[in-house]
Nucleic acid binder design. Structure first.
Lengths: 191, 191
DNA sequence: CAATATAATATACAAATGTAGTTTAAAATT
DNA sequence: AATTTTAAACTACATTTGTATATTATATTG
């Protein structure tokens, strides 16, 4: 899905993208995404506007790229590697890690959600759904809940999780993650 | 939330908005939202471009307005009115109704989801969460599941539902709603 | 190191955007 | 029906967008 392979990129290209991503991150803390022009971003990044367009077709694509970088990091750091866990423990551990991932980047994600053009924390949803679906398709999980379609379960739980995350990010006085997770446990019937 | 009150609007304004919404709906079946210009929309709607800007700040806002109209209809027609049901039956009935609502508008919603600027089936998520939270806060529901925070439950279930809907809308060969609902039943532990 | 490939910059331009200020037409009010 | 109010249309303009083309600078390769 949101796989970014930068290996093949020229040093100059990586530098340009880093500058553009950095400029966008900075500017989004200053004013809403919608009010930022490509011209603004390029001025801040000290990159020529035509160079911008040789990398991204518009500012939405740059934001998408920025979020994809975060998603890759989220997926690779938050999903438990331990193959011995059951689906329940797996889900709860993943949930805990993902919440703390978002908590660490609260300001940026809030800005993304508030920007009218909120280009996709949903990318993460698709990406995580894919991972989870793959996992839940394994025999040991199928055996535990034979009547549940792994794809349905995957989209159900990732959607639920990210809905809670969005709500939690936008809350002015968010509940503690412990409290949230304690509630969450009661919504997962599978073992 | 996504409340649109058109009562106070002049006849001329309602006409203009109707024309613009109609033009956008038509054009979105022809090419992706991203490739549509305000100029295109106004040409199709036979409305002057400056008039467009006196109603909406940009095309995203028009799309948002279009979706909000649908949300209002969805909320008012899909949520069960019968106050005697328990939360489980309530959730399942609502789910069934919402699925068929989206199924009837499959093409339009697919277009919205595919348009890079996917301005918010998520609005509906917030709106429905609010409704559901309000409902689950009622004493009869609290008594049934005293340890569950109604807000958490509301965001959990609406997020899960809408994630499934998005997945289902984007699938080329979607499973039947009956099959989906049969799976869904297994994810709702509360009675 | 020299040669080659390619990314960044520079310049220019047509189209679209967003916003003034003004005029005209059609609602609502008396 | 006449008056007032206000929305739509019109005109004009500065800015931004997206693209095409040519030139310069910098990685990469041999």
């Amino acid at each position: 899905m949101g796989q970014i392979n930068e290996e093949h990129l020229d040093m100059r290209q990586r530098k340009t993208r880093k500058l553009l991503v950095g400029a966008l991150s900075e500017l989004m803390e200053e004013k809403p995404f919608q009010q930022l022009s490509v011209t603004d971003i390029c001025r801040r990044a000290m990159v020529h506007r035509t160079t911008f367009y040789s990398h991204f077709s518009d500012k939405q694509q740059l934001l998408k790229y920025l979020l994809e970088e975060l998603e890759n990091k989220c997926i690779s750091t938050c999903l438990p590697k331990d193959p011995e866990r059951g689906p329940r423990e797996y889900l709860l551990t993943a949930a805990k890690n993902v919440f703390s991932f978002f908590a660490q980047r609260r300001a940026l994600y809030r800005a993304c959600l508030n920007s009218g053009a909120d280009a996709d924390v949903r990318m993460l949803e698709q990406c995580a759904s894919g991972e989870l679906c793959h996992l839940l398709s394994e025999p040991r999980f199928r055996a535990a809940s034979p009547n549940i379609d792994p794809c349905v379960a995957a989209h159900f739980y990732t959607g639920a999780m990210l809905s809670l995350i969005r709500w939690w990010l936008l809350s002015e006085n968010p509940m503690t993650t412990d409290h949230l997770l304690a509630n969450l446990e009661q919504f997962i019937p599978i073992q």
